[in-house]
Design a binder for these strands. Structure first.
Lengths: 216, 216
DNA sequence: TAGATTGTTAATCGATTAACAATC
DNA sequence: TAGATTGTTAATCGATTAACAATC
C-alpha cells in the first residue's frame, strides 16, 4: 500500500466503477470473486484489478479471491461515501433539477444544502424538499452555512463572476457542467468537469469514422 | 499525417476542447496563434498541441504559427460538426429535456429526430419542437426513419430490453447516461458513457483527500 | 537574411500487463 | 498437501515531452 498522494488519477477514476460493480454483485448475493472473474465482467485485466486494489492495501486472500461485501465496503470507505460534503447547486434549470433528483442520494458522499437561481420566477419552488433561492442570497448563505462544494449548471457567461464569489466565500471543490475553465482561473481549487457537448462531439467523430470504415 | 485508425483515443478526446478554445479565440477576433500561446491558454504543452494536430495533417506554418479560423474549420471538419447524424432520445425527464434543449444545436454533428418516453402522461408534449412519443412506437419509428444514434436517459433497469431493440433496428452508436454496460452487451456498437454519479464520487475522493491534507 | 515556429523524430515518463513467489 | 489466487516486482507498451532540422 502506497501513500495517498502517489495514487494516480487513472486509478482513482476507476474506483467509482469498481464500487458500482461490487454493489451489483453484492445485491445479487455473490460473496466471493476472483480478480479474473471480476476482470471478465468489467472488461479489464485481472492484473490491473489486483494492481489497483493494492494501491489501497491488501483486500484479498491468496487462493480464495476477494470477499465481495468486504471489498465493497472498503472501496466505499476510500471514496468516503458516508461523508456528507455540504454542497450547493447553482442553476435550477432542467439539468439542475435532474442532478438534484438523481445524484445526491444516500452514499453519494455529498449532501445538497442549497439551490440557487437568478430567475425570479422559479425562486421559492421546491426541488426534493429544498427551496430554490435567489442567487442574491448566495453570499450570505455561504457565510452562514459554509458549503464546501458547488455544482454549476448555469450559462458559461455567468461563471467568472460566480466562481470568484464562491471561491471567496470558501468553496473548495466544483462539479462543473459549464465550459468555463474554473481550474485555470482558480489554481488550487478542485474541479471535476462534465462537458456534455465534448462527449457528443467525440461520439460524432467515432460514429462517422466507423460509418466511413464500414462503407469501404 | 497518419491513418485514422492509428489515432489514439486520448488525442480524439482532446479534439472537442481544442475546437471550443479555437471557437472562442475566433469569436474574439484572434486570427493567429502559436502552439506555445495556445498551450499556455489551455494548460497543455506546446509539444503536445503540435503533436496532436499533426495526427491529422500540417495545419500550421513554420515561423508563423496557426491561422485560427482555418484551424478551427479543420478541426470542425475532423469532428464532422456539419454532419447531421439522425438521433433519437429515450427518456424525456429533466435530464432528457436538458439534453434536448442544449446539446443538439447547430454544429453538434447530430440532429435529434425523435423523443420517446414510457410515461403516458407526458407523451404528446413538445420539447424544442419535437413531440414526445410513447416508447411503444419506437420500433416502427426506427424502421421508418433509420436513426443512427440513440441517447439513453432512462432507468438502468429498462436498458437491457431497450438496447436489444435499438441494436436490432440498426442503431450504431449510443450516448449513454445510464449505468447499463451497452458495450459489454453489444460488442461492435459505439458507446460514449456519461456516468454523472462516478464524476461525483471521484470529486468526493479528491475533495476529502485534499481536506485531510490541509488539516495536517 | 534572421528570427520564429512548425513538423517530426527520439527520449522520457507513466500506466498497463505479465510473471511468479508467497500463501491461503 | 495440492490447487488456486493474491500481492508485488519486472517487462512492456503507449503517451507525453524534448529536441532540433526544416522552412516560412
Amino acid at each position: 500500500m502506497q501513500n495517498k498522494d502517489d495514487i494516480s488519477i487513472s486509478v482513482i477514476k476507476r474506483l467509482p466503477r469498481y464500487y458500482r460493480f461490487l454493489q451489483s454483485l453484492k445485491d445479487n448475493g455473490i460473496v466471493r470473486i476472483s480478480s479474473k472473474e471480476l476482470a471478465a465482467r468489467m472488461g479489464l485485466t485481472a492484473s490491473q484489478i489486483r494492481h489497483d486494489f493494492n494501491c489501497f492495501g491488501g483486500f484479498g486472500q491468496q487462493g480464495y479471491g476477494y470477499n465481495v461485501p468486504e471489498l465493497h465496503a472498503k472501496i466505499g470507505e476510500i471514496l468516503c461515501v458516508d461523508k456528507e460534503i455540504k454542497t450547493i447547486l447553482i442553476g435550477a434549470g432542467n439539468l439542475g433539477k435532474a442532478i438534484t433528483n438523481k445524484m445526491f442520494s444516500k452514499n453519494s458522499g455529498f449532501k445538497l444544502i442549497g439551490i440557487f437561481d437568478k430567475n425570479e420566477a422559479i425562486c421559492g419552488n421546491m426541488i426534493k424538499g429544498i427551496p430554490v433561492r435567489n442567487v442574491n442570497y448566495l453570499e450570505n448563505f455561504c457565510i452562514d452555512n459554509s458549503p464546501v462544494c458547488a455544482v454549476t449548471c448555469i450559462p458559461s457567461t455567468d461563471m467568472e463572476e460566480l466562481t470568484d464569489l464562491l471561491v471567496k466565500v470558501g468553496i473548495k471543490s466544483f462539479l462543473n457542467f459549464t465550459n468555463y475553465d474554473i481550474a485555470m482561473a482558480h489554481p488550487g481549487v478542485i474541479v471535476e468537469n462534465v462537458h456534455l457537448r465534448d462527449s457528443l462531439l467525440t461520439l460524432g467523430y467515432l460514429t462517422n469514422t466507423s460509418l466511413d470504415k464500414s462503407e469501404e
